[in-house]
């Protein structure tokens, strides 16, 4: 985009990432169903990953891979956020799996997922 008219549209990716994060946080804070809370947390995860990868992007850059077709002069995208996000996605799956197993266990015990019903702390 060479003209300055589109300058602010460039920030659309950041805006979307922050917005998706906020929508997920809203679900995690307001909703009363445990499964909806876990869904909200996984949405926050998606938004955060997009935010971190976008930080390393450079306009006109290529992917950080020195394949035989690389001419040696073109700028490369920052690989460090990509490596961090690679880790974060796999860990996020582990977190979601443990959270869902806790949900199943609570359902087995209380037969409800409505968090106002689950009051007694002793299982």
């Amino acid at each position: 985009m060479d003209s300055t008219y589109f300058q602010y549209l460039d920030y659309a990716v950041y805006g979307t990432a922050v917005l998706v994060m906020l929508i997920g946080l809203y679900a995690a804070l307001v909703k009363k169903s445990l499964l909806k809370i876990v869904i909200g947390l996984s949405i926050v995860d998606s938004g955060l990953n997009l935010l971190i990868v976008t930080l390393g992007y450079i306009k006109g850059g290529t992917a950080p891979i020195f394949s035989p077709g690389y001419n040696g002069t073109q700028a490369m995208v920052d690989p460090i956020p990509q490596a961090l996000v690679l880790t974060a996605i796999v860990i996020g799956f582990g977190v979601t799996a443990v959270a869902l197993s806790l949900v199943i266990r609570l359902w087995r015990h209380h037969h409800t997922l409505y968090i106002d019903e689950i009051k007694n702390l002793k299982w």
């Binding site: 460039d10 920030y11 990716v13 950041y14 922050v18 976008t54 930080l55 450079i58 306009k59």
Partner: peptide
Amino acid sequence: LAVVGFYTAETFFDIGFGK
């Protein structure tokens, strides 16, 4: 959420996209 979103967006607006 509005407060959190405003300050987050402001921070990333200063960093800039694709530079």
